[in-house]
Computed example of a mutant assay.
Amino acid sequence: MKGIINALDNNASVRDEKQQNPFWILVRKEVAGHIRSWRFIILLVLVVLTFWGATAVAMNNIKDTVAKVKDLESLFLYLKILTTTEGTLPPFHVFLNFLGPLLGISLGFDAINSEQQNGTLTRIMAQPIYRDNLLLSKFVSSLLLVGTLLLALSLLMVGGGMLLTGVMIEVEELIRILCFMLLCTVYVGFWLGLSILLSIVFKQASTSALTAIGIWLFFTVFYQIVVNMVVTMLTSGSGELTQMQVMHLNEIILNILRLAPSQLYADATTTLLMPSVRSLGPVTMEQMAGAIPSPLSIRDSLLIVWPQLTGLLAATLLCFAFSYYLFMRREIRT
């Protein structure tokens, strides 16, 4: 009788494995490969140490503030943990503006070309697996790891704040923090999609990694310098500008700078984590007249950051669409 039961259990397990979607099998394989790799472990340690250093500095300042302030509901305590700094270390969202691209690039720069160089791509495609499942599993598995990491860090931050201050988190603060983590995941996803695209374009993993880092350095360091130089050259002979012309020029410069993913991320995180921010562009004194100096609701803040979020999503989908097109047309048997 036991032998029959064991045989039935074995048959059921074999049947379940056959009925499993190949896509989720590939996702589990990629997640397991990332978790066991030294590259991801080093990046994980770096992100966790950065988070611990930035939040520790902020919590030391906030403990003194909590002891002095009586109206804690309007303090946005847990948002200040992510934005407060002493000057020795920048806040955590500024750190993520720097570490997020490195995290995305490191997880995707050798996604396809390393498989082809090792000869495993041909063996994988010999199985009953679609090409789009393989490409999508590379992207989804890395995003799952990044999202899980950011969610765990946010929950640790909330729990540590409750233990140190004894103040319960407000619902609006929790929603803002979760939206911030979602935005960070999308930001990392853009650089992940770009690095996967470069891993398809270039045959060598080192070439794709250097190209991705070069693009990141251009948008992070040199893009603003180039834009300011071009604008200065164009406006040097126009004489003195009026107030409206200066505002119009600043608005044009800001829109050009928003072509950089780092600028979109900075604008969105500033609005989500600082409810007092009411506008992301230049504002005249006439527009400020009559404005009530109160924090915005979460709905109004989301309406302000919606263009930035859709811009990052569109850029990510565009990179993945190019990756899909090139990978579906590639000859993988050679």
Rank of each mutant, 00 (worst) to 15 (best):
G3Q: 08
I4R: 12
N6K: 14
L8Q: 12
S13K: 12
R15L: 07
D16M: 11
P22A: 02
P22W: 02
F23A: 04
W24Y: 15
I25H: 10
I25N: 09
L26T: 02
L26E: 06
E30P: 00
V31P: 03
G33Q: 14
R36A: 09
S37R: 11
F40E: 02
L43H: 05
L43N: 06
V47G: 00
T50E: 10
F51Y: 13
G53P: 01
A54C: 15
T55A: 14
T55N: 14
T55I: 13
A56E: 14
A56K: 08
M59K: 12
N61S: 13
K63L: 09
A67Y: 01
V69H: 03
L72R: 07
L77V: 15
K80N: 12
I81R: 00
T83R: 09
E86S: 15
L89I: 11
P90Q: 10
H93S: 08
F98K: 06
F98A: 11
P101I: 13
L103E: 11
S106E: 11
L107E: 04
G108K: 04
G108P: 08
I112K: 02
N118P: 00
N118R: 11
L121K: 02
M125G: 07
R131F: 06
D132K: 10
K138D: 05
V140Y: 01
S141P: 01
L145R: 10
G147P: 07
G147I: 02
L149R: 04
L151T: 15
A152R: 01
L153A: 04
G159L: 13
G159S: 12
T165I: 09
M168K: 14
L174W: 03
I175Q: 06
R176V: 05
I177L: 11
F180S: 10
L183G: 06
L183R: 00
T185M: 10
V186M: 11
Y187H: 07
V188P: 04
L198H: 12
L198E: 07
I200Y: 05
V201E: 06
A205N: 03
S206R: 11
T207C: 02
L217N: 01
V221M: 13
F222T: 09
Y223V: 00
N228W: 11
M229S: 13
T232Y: 05
M233Q: 15
L234R: 07
G239E: 08
L241K: 10
T242R: 04
M244Q: 14
Q245C: 00
Q245E: 15
H248S: 12
L249P: 02
L249W: 09
L249Q: 10
L249A: 09
I252G: 07
N255M: 12
P261R: 09
P261A: 06
L264S: 07
A266D: 13
T270V: 05
L272Y: 01
M274G: 03
P275W: 09
P275V: 08
S276L: 07
S276E: 13
R278Q: 10
G281M: 09
V283I: 15
V283F: 06
Q287I: 02
L296M: 14
D300N: 07
S301H: 01
L302S: 05
I304W: 03
W306D: 06
Q308F: 13
Q308R: 08
G311H: 11
L312T: 08
L313I: 13
A314K: 10
T316P: 03
F320E: 10
Y324H: 12
Y325C: 05
L326I: 08
R329F: 02
I332V: 15
